[in-house]
Design a protein around this nucleic acid. Structure first.
Length: 285
DNA sequence: GCGTGATGTTGAA
DNA sequence: TCAACCTCACGCC
């Protein structure tokens, strides 16, 4: 159930575990058997995340011989594209994989580690053109150094859709999910219902910069914390065990509880099939 | 043990 | 707008 920070975190772990190794790939569950047979025995170059999409670059013998000196993602022959959807999970461990538990779509075995993938929405072998087409479909990802926020700003500025919808739209902001959208709007006192075209450049720039900070921090920690130091439980005298969902948050999954800052009741509604949380006291317009 | 819901996306109606 | 997909943890018997 990951937002972009988790995918980037996993990409780093996978690269650390398998980078540049010849690996064994199979599909115990069988649904990725054909794809697995394509990359089995190839070199796992690296894993990279773009928003919530993960691409594992594989290089076959031809590339290995021609470009022995070059060891970058661009040298790959093919990629395994993985999207976890709502339920997908990676398990990465040392040594040999345990006796199979549950349905494993894809399994990677390297020199020192193994990885098991369960329940992804997408797990497929794609070529350069298909990867390009996929990347063209998604917006800039605040976690990536090569992201161009102007692309997101152009869309926000021209849209009458509420900013809460735009933040979840992967064509606008890649990698943002339900927690970051709720929390970043709270942190900037912006109503989730304000149309994109009514955001100023300053509003947008502040949101973007904050997403960069929060999501990069979330990548390092592998979890989401959005509460500022001065509002943390220790600083405000709250019970630190209350209202936690992995990390510390202001509004996500806090419906009907009191806002830490203004005391109003956190609201919840369904917006396009996803739960939207906000504080009516702090996020007025 | 059972039912529910979850940090998501797609494609048909 | 809605159902379908896929898995697992958690709350409530």
């Amino acid at each position: 159930m990951p937002e972009g920070n988790v995918i980037h975190h996993q990409a780093r772990r996978l690269t650390r575990a398998f980078g540049q190794q010849v690996v064994e790939v199979d599909s115990p569950q069988g649904r990725f058997a054909t794809g697995a047979s394509v990359v089995n025995g190839q070199r796992f170059v690296d894993a990279q995340a773009f928003g919530k999409h993960l691409f594992i670059a594989f290089a076959g013998p031809a590339v290995a011989e021609q470009h022995a000196a070059k060891r970058r993602s661009g040298d790959a022959d093919n990629w395994v594209h993985v999207h976890l959807g709502l339920f997908g999970k990676w398990r990465i461990g040392k040594g040999l994989p345990p006796a199979e538990r549950g349905l494993i779509r894809m399994r990677v075995i390297g020199e020192t580690h193994y990885a098991e993938l369960r329940g992804p929405t997408a797990c497929e072998v794609i070529n350069f053109a298909e990867r390009d087409a996929l990347l063209a479909r998604i917006g800039p990802d605040p976690i990536r150094r090569d992201a161009d926020p102007q692309r997101a700003w152009q869309r926000v500025q021209r849209s009458k859709a509420p900013i809460a919808s735009l933040l979840m739209d992967q064509r606008v902001f890649a990698g943002v999910g339900n927690i970051y959208r709720a929390e970043v709007l709270f942190r900037h006192n912006i109503s989730p219902f304000r149309p994109g075209c009514e955001l100023t450049w300053a509003d947008f720039a502040a949101i973007w910069a904050d997403l960069v900070d929060l999501m990069r921090q979330g990548t390092k920690r592998g979890r989401i914390d959005t509460v500022r130091t001065e509002h943390r439980p220790e600083a405000m005298g709250r019970d630190p065990r209350q209202d936690r969902h992995g990390g510390e948050v202001y509004v996500y999954r806090r419906a009907q509880r009191e806002c830490f800052l203004c005391g109003e009741e956190i609201q919840l509604m369904d917006l396009q099939g996803r739960k939207l949380y906000w504080c009516p006291g702090c996020q007025v317009a």
